[in-house]
Design a protein around this nucleic acid. Structure first.
Lengths: 362, 362
DNA sequence: TTGTACGCGTTATCAG
DNA sequence: CTGATAACGCGTACAA
C-alpha cells in the first residue's frame, strides 16, 4: 500500500515533532496529556498503523519468537501450539510456527531465516540438528529453549516431561494388570524421547525380573504404528500387551491388531503416550500417559522470555506425567488357546502364550 | 546479537562501496566477475547474514505470506499446511501460520499484525470476519485468497472444494446402499461449508423423494460429534445412517454410537468428510468424501502469488471431491428392533429431545 | 515538556 | 563497471 501514514504525517498534522509523536503514541517519557490526546486523535483519524518492520530495524527486536516442531500432523503438537500461543500472548509476544518435518536442514534454514528477521528466540521440539550447531547458534545470540527433548549436551535450556517415568508407569500399569509378555513400539531411533520412554519400559520390566518383550520402531505416525504392530504380530514372539511410544502409533497399532482378528482389551492391551484428544474417542478409548501440556508450554515460554531478558540459562526442568486409564487395557486372557502351562514368575517369557501372573513378582 | 556483519563491513573488507557489495551479493546489475567473487568470498569469511528486516524496510516486501486457519487441532488443517508450505517454497516464499480459533477479533488482529510486518498476502481458511472488512483490507492493499470458503460477496479471490457435490455424493452413497432414514451432523451454523454440505445432502434426499432426517450441529471437533450423535440417538427419530460434515465429528459420532450399544456398520452407517489420515485407521475405517488437498493448496498459493504480481482477481474456483468407500458404511439392517413399521419417508419429529432445525437456521 | 539529529541495514537512483 | 546519496519508518541520546 503506497503512502501509509507514518509518524511524520502525524507530526505534520499535529504540528509536533516526529519524536514527540512517537513518545506520545507509546505513552513514554513526559508528555502533556493534551498533546497525547491530540496525537492519539489524529492517529485514529489518519488511520495510522505502526510499521513493525521499521520498529524492528530500530530496536533490533520483534516481540515475537518461533515455535519449531517436527510434524504438525501429529495431534499432540497442535494442542501444544495452542498452549504456547496462549502463554506467549500473556507476555505480549506473537509466535511464528515452523514445521520442519524433522529434517535437520530445514531446521537450519528456519533458524537462519529467524535470525535474519530479528526473531529473538525459539522454542523447539524434537530438534534434529547437532548439539554443536545448537551451541553455535546460542553462541551467536539466538535464544533457544528445547522442549520435550534433552538439550543435547546442555547446549540449550530445556523443559521436558519425564518420559522415563512415563515409560515406567505405563509398563507398571500393564504388569499390575497381570501382563508378562509386553511388547514395545518405540519411536524413531536416535531421539531422546524414544530412548527415555523405552528405558522406562525396560527398567520396569527388569525390576519385575522379566526380559523386555519384542520391540518394533515407528516414526510416531499412525501408519507406522500400524506397520509396527503387524511386524510384532508376525514376529513369532507372543505378547499380551503393547506399550506404544505415542498415542498415534497406538491408534495405528489397534487398527492392525483388529485386522489381525485380535480383540481389545480382552485379548491384547494397548497403552499409548501423550493423551491426545482423539484417544478419548477411539474405540476402545485409549489408556495412556498424559503429558502436562499446559505446564510444558508455560515453563518453556517463561524460560524463553527469561532468556530474552538476559537471565541465565537455568537447569533443565522435568515435569511429571500421569497415567490415564481408559478402555484399551485389561487383564491378559486367562487361557491362551493351545497352551496349558502357566508362566514362570521370572525369566524369559516362553515362546507362546502366558497366563495369570502370581503375586510374588512384586 | 551485537555487531552482526553488514554490507558496510564487507565494503570495508573488499575496498568496495556498500552499493557494489549489495549488487554483487544479489548478482544484479553489471559487476565484474572478479569483484563478485571477492565479495562472495569475504561474505563467507565474515559470516555475513543479510538482514531481512532492513531489506523489508527498503523494498516494502518480505517474500512471505500468511496462512490463516481456524483450528490446527483439526487434522485436516495440518495436512493442508504441509501442502501449502510445499507450494510456497516452490515460489521462494515462506509462510507464517496464524490460527485464529475461529474468533473474528483474532483474525482482525492477525491481519493488522501482518500488514504491519509487510506480509504481502494471506491464504485464509474459514474466515469469520465480515465481507465488509475483507473488502476494506483488500482495498487497502492486502492480497487475500479465501480457501475452502465462499469469498463472501466476491470480496476476495477464492478456491474451494465442491462441498455441495460432496454432500450430495455422500448422501447418494447411503441411498444406494438402501438407507432411507439418514441423519446429518452439520458444522457450525453460518459457515458456508456447513451450509453447502448440508444443501448437497438435502438436495439428494429431495431427489429421492425423501424428507431430510434429523439434524444436529457440531463445531467440527470430535467431542462435538460425540455430543451431536448422542442428541440424535435420543431425539426419538430413527435413522440408519449419519452423514457427518467432517471426519473428526464422524469419529466422535462413532464413539457415541458404540457407547449407545449400536454396531457399525451393521446397525448404523456413518460417512465423514475430508478424508483425514486418521479415518483410515479408525475402526471401522471411515467412508468419507476426499477433498483434493494438494490441488487446493496449489491453486490457492498460485492464485495468491498471481495477485502479488499484480494480476487480476480471477473467478472463484471449484475443485472436485471424491467418494472414498471404506468400512463404516453398509446396507441398513433389514429389521429395526422394537419398531414394527418401516420408517416413514417424511414426518415431523416427535416432541422432545430432537434438534431438528428448519432451513432458516442457516 | 518538546525538538534535532542520527542510526538501524538495505535498496534504488543517478552520476561518474 | 562502480560510487555517492537519499530514502524506508521509527527510536533515542542529547539538547533546548
Amino acid at each position: 500500500m503506497p503512502g501509509a501514514t507514518t509518524i511524520y504525517d502525524l507530526a505534520r498534522a499535529t504540528g509536533l515533532s516526529p519524536s514527540t509523536v512517537s513518545r506520545a503514541l507509546r505513552g513514554i517519557g513526559d508528555i502533556s496529556p493534551g498533546t497525547v490526546a491530540r496525537v492519539r486523535d489524529s492517529a485514529a483519524r489518519l488511520r495510522y498503523r505502526p510499521n513493525a518492520v521499521a520498529r524492528s530495524l530500530a530496536v533490533r527486536g520483534s516481540d515475537s519468537f518461533a515455535l519449531m516442531l517436527p510434524d504438525i500432523a501429529n495431534p499432540f503438537f497442535p494442542a501444544l501450539v495452542k498452549a504456547v500461543q496462549l502463554r506467549a500472548r500473556h507476555h505480549g509476544k506473537t509466535v511464528l510456527l515452523c514445521n520442519t518435518e524433522g529434517v535437520p536442514e530445514a531446521e537450519g534454514e528456519y533458524l537462519e531465516m529467524l535470525a535474519s528477521r530479528q526473531i529473538e528466540g525459539v522454542v523447539a521440539m524434537g530438534l534434529a540438528i547437532t548439539a554443536e550447531e545448537i551451541r553455535r547458534r546460542v553462541g551467536s545470540g539466538m535464544k533457544i529453549v528445547a522442549l520435550d527433548r534433552a538439550a543435547a549436551g546442555g547446549s540449550a535450556a530445556s523443559v521436558q516431561a519425564d518420559h522415563r517415568a512415563g515409560g515406567w508407569t505405563a509398563t507398571d500399569h500393564l504388569l499390575e494388570l497381570g501382563h508378562r509378555a509386553i511388547a514395545h513400539i518405540a519411536g524413531p531411533a536416535g531421539l531422546s524421547v524414544t530412548t527415555e520412554r523405552w528405558e522406562g519400559y525396560r527398567d520396569r520390566m527388569h525390576e519385575a525380573g522379566i526380559e523386555p518383550g519384542p520391540l518394533a520402531h515407528g516414526d510416531f505416525s499412525e501408519s507406522s504404528g500400524h506397520r509396527a504392530a503387524q511386524e510384532l504380530v508376525s514376529c513369532g514372539r507372543r505378547f499380551t500387551a503393547i506399550f506404544c511410544a505415542n498415542d498415534l502409533m497406538a491408534l495405528g497399532a489397534i487398527s492392525a491388531l483388529r485386522s489381525a482378528g485380535l480383540e481389545l482389551p480382552s485379548q491384547v492391551s494397548v497403552v499409548g503416550f501423550d493423551d491426545i484428544e482423539l484417544g478419548r474417542y477411539a474405540v476402545p478409548a485409549l489408556t495412556t500417559i498424559r503429558q502436562p501440556l499446559a505446564e510444558l508450554a508455560r515453563v518453556a515460554v517463561d524460560l524463553l522470555v527469561g532468556l530474552l531478558h538476559g537471565e541465565e540459562s537455568p537447569e533443565p526442568e522435568r515435569l511429571a506425567v500421569e497415567l490415564v486409564v481408559r478402555e484399551s487395557t485389561a487383564a491378559p486372557p486367562r487361557l491362551v488357546v493351545g497352551l496349558g502351562a502357566p508362566l514362570a514368575t521370572s525369566g524369559i517369557a516362553p515362546r507362546g502364550g502366558e497366563d495369570v501372573r502370581s503375586r510374588e513378582d512384586f
